[in-house]
């Protein structure tokens, strides 16, 4: 929420998020150099994340619950590109729908664009390694990505308003989010399974292109 975080925290979260965003931008520049047609695809996926995460549910205390869409983004593109996408999506949400805000952009990018996707991506990769069925891997990734986003947000809020102390404040914020976010996370997990399986079933070539998107820059190194 605009204006909710004191300015010191805004600066801190910007400082933490910025290097990751810059790294993501470098990745995107490399990919776009090699495959110019990836640009519209990135744009489409970004717009898709925007639509998903605009389904805002009323929650309280200076933030709000909504599906993050970052599970899908992280599975499809890997965490770094998703970070840049999430940052752009958050700017659009602030400007178009008065969700989030510009001063809190750093903090929001950190929770929704960095921690969420990283956890989603690690969960996905880990579950695949453990030979779990792909639908369960996708569900866990989307669910955990979602939950971790809000755990991070709770800590961010608690760090800014540590009354009576950090842990107590964080658990209070988490409790408030939990009412809306756990069911929402489950719903997003299920939704992501359906989306993912449909994409695999109907347009398997998309995922091949996506694999190219992720692997190209690493193979040239």
């Amino acid at each position: 929420m605009e204006g909710f975080l004191p300015w010191q925290w805004c600066i801190l979260w910007y400082a933490i998020s910025l290097p990751v965003i810059i790294y993501g931008i470098i990745r995107i520049m490399k990919v776009a150099d090699e495959l110019p047609e990836s640009k519209p695809l990135l744009a489409v996926s970004g717009a898709f994340i925007f639509i998903l995460s605009s389904l805002k549910m009323p929650s309280v205390t200076g933030s709000c619950s909504h599906p993050t869409g970052n599970g899908l983004g992280a599975i499809l593109f890997g965490p770094w590109i998703t970070t840049v996408m999430a940052a752009i999506v958050l700017i659009f949400q602030a400007l178009l729908l008065a969700h989030g805000g510009l001063t809190t952009l750093g903090a929001n990018t950190f929770s929704m664009g960095i921690i969420g996707p990283i956890f989603a991506w690690l969960t996905y990769k880990g579950s695949i390694k453990l030979n779990l069925p792909i639908s369960i891997a996708v569900f866990l990734a989307a669910f955990l990505g979602d939950i971790m986003t809000y755990v991070t947000t709770s800590f961010q809020l608690a760090l800014a308003f540590p009354t009576p102390n950090l842990i107590a404040a964080a658990s209070k914020f988490m409790l408030i989010f939990a009412y809306t976010q756990v069911p929402l996370g489950v719903a997003e997990g299920l939704l992501t399974i359906v989306v993912f399986e449909n994409i695999l079933k109907l347009k398997p070539d998309i995922t091949e292109k996506l694999n190219l998107l992720i692997r190209k820059p690493t193979s040239t190194r």
Partner: peptide
Amino acid sequence: SIKSLGLLASNLFIRSWLQGERVY
């Protein structure tokens, strides 16, 4: 609802993906 929303989202993704390629 979950099934419909999932169908909607996946279809939307695929359709706009194709559209994105065409627009480009």
